[in-house]
Amino acid sequence: MSHVATVFAQSFFHGTRADLRPGDLIAVGYPSNFTEAEPLSWVYFTATLDAAIWGAELAAGDGRERIYVVEPTGPIVDDPNLTDKKFPGNPTRSFRSRAPLRVLAEVVGWHGHAPDAVKNMKEGVARAMVEGRGLID
């Protein structure tokens, strides 16, 4: 297998409203995109564009929804907030790391979910927060 094929064998994405540039680091110690909880001790990312789109669409704030191709700089583990708690296995291919993610590029030209689907998902997230089920580990 060529080196190029190895480099591009797996892409990871991060959906947010943050305005970042290639080379920037997404690091622990910042509040979640979704809650007003304490700063997170993990950074979250996915290997599916669909999950990253949800991340961008559900992110708090007024900034433009953005999706970045990211590179983990350290060890990664399955995201326990989704893996096995909500979905058996890891079908959303969601991960987390204590090490920063390096922004490689911004994904452009992606298409979001239907407005009704986003509205329903946001209402579900809000309900989970009120009921205490929305905690991010």
Rank of each mutant, 00 (worst) to 15 (best):
V118A: 03
F95S: 15
V107C: 04
A114T: 12
D79R: 04
P91S: 01
T35A: 02
A9W: 11
N120G: 04
R127T: 09
R64H: 11
G112L: 05
G109C: 02
Y68C: 04
P80K: 10
D79T: 11
D19M: 06
T48W: 15
N120V: 05
A47D: 02
K85G: 00
D19N: 10
S94L: 09
F95H: 06
M129A: 11
L20D: 06
G124C: 03
R102G: 10
K122M: 13
E131R: 00
V4W: 13
K85E: 03
Q10R: 15
A114E: 05
F45G: 10
L25W: 08
A128S: 01
P31H: 13
P31N: 02
V103W: 01
V28Y: 07
G63H: 12
A9L: 08
A27E: 07
A117W: 00
F87G: 09
I67T: 00
N120M: 07
P100C: 02
I53G: 03
T35D: 01
V118H: 02
R102M: 11
R21N: 00
D19E: 11
D19I: 02
E65A: 12
G63V: 14
I76C: 09
I76S: 13
G61D: 10
V69G: 10
K86E: 07
A60S: 11
A52E: 12
G74N: 08
Y30N: 05
I53T: 06
K86W: 12
E38K: 01
K119E: 03
R17E: 01
H14I: 14
A114S: 15
D62G: 07
Y30A: 12
E106A: 02
R127S: 08
K119R: 13
A126G: 05
I53W: 04
F8K: 15
R98D: 14
A128V: 00
E65K: 09
A114N: 07
G124N: 05
L82K: 01
E65N: 09
P31F: 11
V43F: 15
M129F: 13
P100H: 01
R64A: 14
P115H: 15
P88E: 07
P88S: 10
T46C: 07
Y68A: 07
A56R: 04
V7R: 05
T16F: 08
L25M: 14
T92R: 11
A105K: 08
D79G: 09
F12M: 13
P75C: 14
K119N: 09
D50C: 00
K86S: 13
A52Q: 05
P72T: 07
W42N: 06
E38D: 06
W110A: 01
V69N: 14
V4E: 15
P88K: 12
I76E: 13
V70C: 07
A51P: 01
P75G: 13
V103G: 02
L25R: 10
G63I: 05
P88R: 09
D24G: 14
H111E: 03
F45E: 08
E38Y: 01
V43T: 12
P22C: 02
F45R: 03
R64N: 03
A114Q: 15
R66K: 10
W54R: 06
G61L: 03
P75W: 14
P91N: 01
W110G: 08
D78I: 08
R98F: 04
D84T: 08
R93C: 15
G15L: 00
V43N: 11
S41L: 12
A56N: 08
G74V: 12
K122G: 13
R93H: 06
S41D: 10
H14P: 15
V118R: 02
R21L: 00
